[in-house]
């Protein structure tokens, strides 16, 4: 039995019908055709489906669409206007924070909330902060630097070196 819900995604209100069992990530990707949010493990382990629900990062494969009724969602598509880049996107670009790119939208959405609470995170704080996001390319060093770059950029500070590190 379908139910009517209203959900604001990236500032735009959508009135949609969903089955109660529809997962939030399926509503976003399949019904609303926003495929920037990825499905990785489908078991709330990998973080590829991370979005912001009322400003908090959550794994949209483990939340029902109907739970987002009346709430506000932000996905990677809502980070910046077309042709522009959010500082976190710029950080990932400048610091080689992505290789295959599959984990990237989830990593960035998680990083947005992390930086909101802690604008100057240490490397250790970032590694704990993204501990719910897996990068199968294992590109974590540059992801950490990308997030530090974004943190500096968002505060109008000088951004750190964008040279890749090799350990």
């Amino acid at each position: 039995m379908k139910k009517q819900i209203t959900i604001t995604i990236n500032g735009e209100q959508h009135a949609v019908e969903v089955e109660p069992r529809t997962l939030l990530v399926h509503l976003i990707r399949e019904q609303l055709s926003m495929t920037g949010t990825h499905i990785g493990c489908d078991t709330s382990s990998c973080g590829a489906c991370t979005i912001l629900l009322d400003g908090k990062s959550i794994k949209s494969c483990t939340v029902l669409a109907i739970q987002a009724d009346g709430k506000s969602v932000q996905t990677v598509e809502g980070l910046a206007a077309p042709g522009e880049m959010h500082p976190i996107q710029e950080g990932f670009k400048e610091c080689h924070g992505l290789q295959c790119g599959f984990c990237t939208p989830g990593m960035m959405m998680r990083a947005v909330e992390l930086l909101e609470h802690n604008p100057n995170p240490t490397e250790e704080e970032i590694r704990w902060g993204i501990s719910g996001n897996l990068c199968r390319c294992t590109g974590y060093n540059n992801i950490v630097r990308a997030i530090q770059y974004a943190g500096a950029k968002m505060q109008g500070k000088e951004t750190p070196s964008t040279e890749p590190t090799f350990v």
Partner: peptide, 12 residues
């Protein structure tokens, strides 16, 4: 709490 699941899961 810091050992329960991960940050996103702890948000829910």
């Amino acid at each position: 709490t810091k050992l329960i699941a991960d940050p996103q899961v702890r948000n829910m």
